[in-house]
Simulated scan of single mutants.
Amino acid sequence: MALAGPSHTTPPKQNQWTFVGEHDLEPGLFGGEPELKVSEKLKDRLCSPWKKTLVVRLLGRSISYAYLCSQLRWEWRQTGRLDILDLNDRTFLVTFHNDQDFLHALTGGPCTILDHYLVVHQWSPSFRTADKPHKSVVAWIQLPELPVHFYHREVLFALGNLIGRTVKLDYHTENMERGKFARIAVELDMTKPMATRIRLDGFWQPVLYENVPEICFECGRIGHTEESCSKKVCNVPNVSLTTKTHVLPIEGSSPSSESPVGYGPWM
Protein backbone atom coordinates (compact mmCIF):
# COMPACT_ATOMS: atom_id res chain seq x y z
CA MET A 1 0.00 0.00 0.00
CA ALA A 2 1.39 3.42 -1.02
CA LEU A 3 1.17 6.46 1.27
CA ALA A 4 0.70 10.00 -0.03
CA GLY A 5 3.03 12.81 0.99
CA PRO A 6 6.78 13.30 1.21
CA SER A 7 9.02 10.41 2.04
CA HIS A 8 11.06 10.53 5.22
CA THR A 9 13.24 7.61 4.30
CA THR A 10 16.90 8.27 5.11
CA PRO A 11 19.02 8.07 1.91
CA PRO A 12 21.65 5.37 1.92
CA LYS A 13 25.11 6.46 2.96
CA GLN A 14 27.72 6.58 0.23
CA ASN A 15 30.69 4.27 0.51
CA GLN A 16 33.42 6.39 2.08
CA TRP A 17 36.10 4.30 0.37
CA THR A 18 35.02 4.96 -3.24
CA PHE A 19 37.73 7.64 -3.49
CA VAL A 20 40.44 5.01 -3.07
CA GLY A 21 40.71 2.22 -5.62
CA GLU A 22 41.55 -1.38 -4.94
CA HIS A 23 45.29 -1.05 -5.65
CA ASP A 24 45.76 2.63 -4.73
CA LEU A 25 47.20 1.89 -1.27
CA GLU A 26 49.60 -0.99 -0.83
CA PRO A 27 51.05 -1.63 2.64
CA GLY A 28 54.38 -3.37 2.91
CA LEU A 29 57.87 -3.20 4.35
CA PHE A 30 60.90 -1.13 3.40
CA GLY A 31 64.14 -2.22 4.98
CA GLY A 32 62.18 -4.04 7.66
CA GLU A 33 60.05 -0.98 8.50
CA PRO A 34 56.39 -0.39 7.61
CA GLU A 35 55.67 1.39 4.33
CA LEU A 36 52.56 2.50 2.47
CA LYS A 37 52.82 2.91 -1.31
CA VAL A 38 50.41 5.32 -3.01
CA SER A 39 49.46 4.92 -6.67
CA GLU A 40 49.99 7.79 -9.12
CA LYS A 41 46.25 7.93 -9.85
CA LEU A 42 45.42 8.41 -6.19
CA LYS A 43 48.15 11.03 -5.77
CA ASP A 44 46.64 12.97 -8.67
CA ARG A 45 43.24 12.92 -6.97
CA LEU A 46 44.70 13.89 -3.61
CA CYS A 47 46.72 16.77 -5.10
CA SER A 48 43.91 18.14 -7.26
CA PRO A 49 42.48 20.50 -4.56
CA TRP A 50 45.96 22.00 -4.03
CA LYS A 51 46.88 22.83 -7.64
CA LYS A 52 46.07 26.53 -7.14
CA THR A 53 47.94 26.81 -3.84
CA LEU A 54 50.91 29.01 -2.97
CA VAL A 55 53.39 28.49 -0.16
CA VAL A 56 54.01 31.79 1.61
CA ARG A 57 56.99 32.12 3.94
CA LEU A 58 57.72 35.20 5.98
CA LEU A 59 61.37 36.24 6.20
CA GLY A 60 61.91 38.03 9.48
CA ARG A 61 59.86 38.10 12.65
CA SER A 62 56.53 36.31 12.79
CA ILE A 63 53.19 38.13 12.65
CA SER A 64 49.71 37.12 13.70
CA TYR A 65 47.64 34.88 11.47
CA ALA A 66 44.72 37.36 11.38
CA TYR A 67 46.97 40.26 10.35
CA LEU A 68 48.65 38.22 7.62
CA CYS A 69 45.26 37.20 6.20
CA SER A 70 44.04 40.79 6.06
CA GLN A 71 47.28 42.03 4.47
CA LEU A 72 47.38 39.30 1.82
CA ARG A 73 43.76 39.90 0.87
CA TRP A 74 44.48 43.61 0.55
CA GLU A 75 47.71 43.03 -1.38
CA TRP A 76 46.27 40.57 -3.89
CA ARG A 77 42.71 41.97 -4.09
CA GLN A 78 41.33 38.63 -5.22
CA THR A 79 37.90 38.39 -6.81
CA GLY A 80 37.15 34.82 -5.69
CA ARG A 81 37.44 32.86 -2.50
CA LEU A 82 40.76 32.67 -0.70
CA ASP A 83 41.67 30.09 1.96
CA ILE A 84 44.74 30.58 4.17
CA LEU A 85 46.12 27.73 6.29
CA ASP A 86 48.80 28.43 8.88
CA LEU A 87 51.35 25.62 9.14
CA ASN A 88 53.53 27.47 11.64
CA ASP A 89 54.20 31.10 12.57
CA ARG A 90 56.17 31.74 9.35
CA THR A 91 54.75 29.31 6.79
CA PHE A 92 51.28 29.48 5.25
CA LEU A 93 49.36 27.77 2.46
CA VAL A 94 47.14 30.06 0.39
CA THR A 95 44.59 28.30 -1.82
CA PHE A 96 42.75 30.18 -4.56
CA HIS A 97 39.44 29.24 -6.15
CA ASN A 98 39.94 31.44 -9.19
CA ASP A 99 42.60 30.88 -11.86
CA GLN A 100 43.16 34.58 -12.47
CA ASP A 101 43.56 35.31 -8.75
CA PHE A 102 46.13 32.52 -8.50
CA LEU A 103 48.19 33.75 -11.46
CA HIS A 104 47.99 37.35 -10.25
CA ALA A 105 49.36 36.41 -6.83
CA LEU A 106 52.07 34.17 -8.30
CA THR A 107 53.28 36.59 -10.98
CA GLY A 108 52.31 39.94 -9.47
CA GLY A 109 55.76 40.49 -8.05
CA PRO A 110 57.23 40.40 -4.55
CA CYS A 111 55.39 41.88 -1.59
CA THR A 112 56.30 42.83 1.96
CA ILE A 113 54.38 42.96 5.23
CA LEU A 114 55.67 45.24 7.98
CA ASP A 115 58.87 45.66 5.95
CA HIS A 116 59.44 41.91 5.93
CA TYR A 117 59.83 40.16 2.62
CA LEU A 118 57.52 37.31 1.64
CA VAL A 119 58.87 34.34 -0.30
CA VAL A 120 56.02 32.98 -2.45
CA HIS A 121 56.23 29.86 -4.60
CA GLN A 122 53.81 27.34 -6.02
CA TRP A 123 52.90 24.34 -3.87
CA SER A 124 54.10 20.91 -5.00
CA PRO A 125 53.55 17.39 -3.60
CA SER A 126 57.17 17.32 -2.45
CA PHE A 127 56.68 20.32 -0.16
CA ARG A 128 57.46 19.75 3.52
CA THR A 129 57.01 22.32 6.26
CA ALA A 130 60.45 21.51 7.66
CA ASP A 131 62.13 22.27 4.33
CA LYS A 132 64.41 25.27 4.16
CA PRO A 133 62.69 28.36 2.71
CA HIS A 134 62.79 28.59 -1.07
CA LYS A 135 65.50 30.91 -2.31
CA SER A 136 63.43 32.03 -5.28
CA VAL A 137 61.05 34.79 -6.28
CA VAL A 138 58.78 35.27 -9.27
CA ALA A 139 59.37 38.53 -11.12
CA TRP A 140 58.70 40.01 -14.56
CA ILE A 141 61.58 40.47 -16.99
CA GLN A 142 61.63 42.50 -20.20
CA LEU A 143 63.56 41.78 -23.39
CA PRO A 144 63.67 45.20 -25.07
CA GLU A 145 63.75 45.47 -28.87
CA LEU A 146 63.54 41.72 -29.34
CA PRO A 147 63.43 40.98 -33.11
CA VAL A 148 59.83 40.41 -34.16
CA HIS A 149 60.42 36.94 -35.61
CA PHE A 150 61.32 35.69 -32.12
CA TYR A 151 57.89 36.60 -30.73
CA HIS A 152 56.83 32.95 -30.64
CA ARG A 153 55.47 31.18 -27.57
CA GLU A 154 58.05 28.37 -27.53
CA VAL A 155 60.96 30.71 -28.23
CA LEU A 156 59.85 33.11 -25.46
CA PHE A 157 59.49 30.25 -22.98
CA ALA A 158 63.00 29.07 -23.87
CA LEU A 159 64.39 32.59 -23.41
CA GLY A 160 62.71 32.90 -20.02
CA ASN A 161 64.17 29.56 -18.96
CA LEU A 162 67.66 30.95 -19.59
CA ILE A 163 67.01 33.54 -16.85
CA GLY A 164 65.08 31.33 -14.43
CA ARG A 165 62.00 29.16 -14.82
CA THR A 166 59.34 30.57 -17.12
CA VAL A 167 56.01 30.86 -15.32
CA LYS A 168 53.86 32.96 -17.65
CA LEU A 169 53.96 35.14 -20.76
CA ASP A 170 52.38 38.57 -20.78
CA TYR A 171 49.13 38.50 -22.76
CA HIS A 172 50.21 41.36 -25.02
CA THR A 173 53.56 39.68 -25.64
CA GLU A 174 52.00 36.34 -26.53
CA ASN A 175 49.56 38.00 -28.94
CA MET A 176 52.24 40.41 -30.20
CA GLU A 177 50.05 43.44 -29.58
CA ARG A 178 53.00 45.48 -28.33
CA GLY A 179 56.42 45.23 -29.90
CA LYS A 180 58.55 47.49 -27.68
CA PHE A 181 59.66 44.56 -25.54
CA ALA A 182 58.79 40.97 -24.67
CA ARG A 183 57.57 40.52 -21.09
CA ILE A 184 57.96 37.20 -19.27
CA ALA A 185 57.31 36.13 -15.67
CA VAL A 186 60.16 33.93 -14.42
CA GLU A 187 61.11 32.32 -11.13
CA LEU A 188 64.50 33.75 -10.17
CA ASP A 189 67.07 31.96 -8.03
CA MET A 190 67.93 34.39 -5.22
CA THR A 191 71.27 32.66 -4.61
CA LYS A 192 72.63 33.47 -8.09
CA PRO A 193 73.60 36.82 -9.64
CA MET A 194 70.90 38.24 -11.89
CA ALA A 195 71.57 37.69 -15.58
CA THR A 196 71.92 40.99 -17.39
CA ARG A 197 71.93 39.71 -20.97
CA ILE A 198 71.61 36.51 -22.96
CA ARG A 199 73.16 35.42 -26.23
CA LEU A 200 70.50 34.95 -28.90
CA ASP A 201 71.32 33.88 -32.44
CA GLY A 202 74.69 35.65 -32.45
CA PHE A 203 73.76 38.91 -30.68
CA TRP A 204 73.46 40.10 -27.08
CA GLN A 205 69.91 40.60 -25.85
CA PRO A 206 69.62 42.87 -22.77
CA VAL A 207 67.46 41.73 -19.85
CA LEU A 208 65.54 44.22 -17.69
CA TYR A 209 63.86 43.46 -14.34
CA GLU A 210 60.67 44.91 -12.88
CA ASN A 211 60.19 45.81 -9.21
CA VAL A 212 62.77 43.44 -7.73
CA PRO A 213 63.38 44.34 -4.05
CA GLU A 214 66.64 44.37 -2.09
CA ILE A 215 69.22 44.09 -4.85
CA CYS A 216 72.85 43.97 -3.74
CA PHE A 217 75.02 46.42 -5.66
CA GLU A 218 78.07 44.35 -4.74
CA CYS A 219 77.18 40.86 -6.02
CA GLY A 220 73.96 41.38 -8.01
CA ARG A 221 71.91 38.95 -5.94
CA ILE A 222 68.38 39.41 -4.61
CA GLY A 223 67.36 39.35 -0.97
CA HIS A 224 69.98 41.50 0.75
CA THR A 225 71.69 44.88 0.41
CA GLU A 226 75.29 45.85 -0.21
CA GLU A 227 75.81 46.63 3.47
CA SER A 228 75.00 43.05 4.51
CA CYS A 229 76.66 41.30 1.55
CA SER A 230 78.97 38.44 2.50
CA LYS A 231 80.27 37.89 -1.02
CA LYS A 232 82.48 40.52 -2.59
CA VAL A 233 82.17 39.80 -6.30
CA CYS A 234 83.32 42.57 -8.60
CA ASN A 235 83.58 41.09 -12.06
CA VAL A 236 79.91 40.39 -12.74
CA PRO A 237 77.75 41.64 -15.62
CA ASN A 238 75.73 44.82 -15.42
CA VAL A 239 72.03 44.62 -14.50
CA SER A 240 69.38 46.86 -16.02
CA LEU A 241 66.46 47.45 -13.68
CA THR A 242 63.04 48.87 -14.55
CA THR A 243 60.03 50.13 -12.74
CA LYS A 244 56.58 49.37 -14.08
CA THR A 245 56.70 52.20 -16.58
CA HIS A 246 60.26 53.53 -16.90
CA VAL A 247 63.68 52.07 -17.55
CA LEU A 248 66.31 53.49 -15.22
CA PRO A 249 69.11 55.15 -17.22
CA ILE A 250 72.54 53.59 -17.34
CA GLU A 251 75.24 56.22 -17.54
CA GLY A 252 78.31 55.33 -19.52
CA SER A 253 77.51 51.66 -20.01
CA SER A 254 75.25 49.35 -21.92
CA PRO A 255 74.09 45.85 -20.96
CA SER A 256 74.49 44.82 -24.59
CA SER A 257 78.14 45.89 -24.84
CA GLU A 258 80.94 43.36 -25.19
CA SER A 259 82.61 44.50 -21.93
CA PRO A 260 79.98 44.85 -19.20
CA VAL A 261 80.86 46.74 -16.03
CA GLY A 262 80.09 45.83 -12.43
CA TYR A 263 76.94 46.51 -10.47
CA GLY A 264 76.47 49.98 -9.06
CA PRO A 265 74.15 52.43 -7.30
CA TRP A 266 72.53 53.37 -10.64
CA MET A 267 70.41 50.21 -10.17
Score class of each variant (00 low, 15 high):
3 L>D: 07
3 L>C: 07
4 A>D: 00
13 K>Q: 10
14 Q>H: 08
17 W>A: 14
17 W>D: 11
17 W>C: 06
18 T>V: 06
19 F>I: 11
20 V>D: 04
25 L>F: 07
27 P>W: 02
28 G>A: 10
30 F>P: 01
39 S>G: 12
42 L>I: 05
43 K>I: 00
43 K>G: 09
45 R>Y: 03
46 L>Y: 09
47 C>K: 10
52 K>L: 14
53 T>V: 06
53 T>M: 10
56 V>R: 07
57 R>M: 04
57 R>I: 01
58 L>M: 14
60 G>F: 13
61 R>D: 13
61 R>I: 04
69 C>F: 00
70 S>K: 15
71 Q>N: 11
73 R>H: 07
77 R>C: 08
77 R>V: 01
78 Q>P: 01
79 T>A: 13
79 T>I: 09
81 R>L: 11
81 R>E: 07
83 D>K: 09
84 I>T: 10
88 N>C: 15
89 D>N: 14
91 T>V: 13
91 T>N: 06
92 F>I: 04
94 V>P: 12
95 T>A: 09
101 D>L: 05
102 F>P: 12
103 L>V: 09
105 A>Y: 04
105 A>H: 08
108 G>T: 05
108 G>M: 05
109 G>H: 09
112 T>S: 15
117 Y>R: 10
117 Y>C: 07
119 V>Y: 02
121 H>R: 12
128 R>K: 14
129 T>Y: 02
130 A>S: 14
133 P>G: 14
135 K>R: 08
141 I>R: 05
141 I>S: 03
141 I>G: 01
142 Q>K: 08
144 P>H: 03
147 P>T: 05
147 P>F: 01
153 R>G: 01
153 R>A: 05
156 L>T: 09
159 L>T: 10
162 L>K: 15
164 G>W: 06
168 K>A: 06
173 T>K: 11
174 E>Q: 15
177 E>D: 10
178 R>K: 12
179 G>A: 03
180 K>S: 15
180 K>N: 15
180 K>Q: 13
180 K>H: 10
180 K>A: 13
184 I>G: 03
185 A>M: 12
186 V>C: 03
187 E>T: 04
188 L>F: 06
188 L>W: 07
191 T>S: 14
193 P>D: 09
194 M>V: 02
196 T>N: 13
197 R>Y: 08
199 R>V: 00
200 L>T: 08
201 D>R: 14
208 L>Y: 09
211 N>M: 06
212 V>Y: 05
212 V>D: 02
213 P>E: 04
214 E>R: 09
216 C>Q: 07
216 C>R: 03
217 F>I: 00
218 E>G: 02
219 C>R: 00
230 S>N: 07
233 V>E: 05
234 C>Y: 10
235 N>Q: 05
237 P>R: 10
239 V>E: 02
243 T>H: 07
244 K>V: 00
244 K>I: 03
245 T>S: 04
251 E>H: 00
253 S>A: 04
257 S>W: 00
259 S>C: 02
260 P>E: 07
261 V>L: 05
263 Y>K: 02
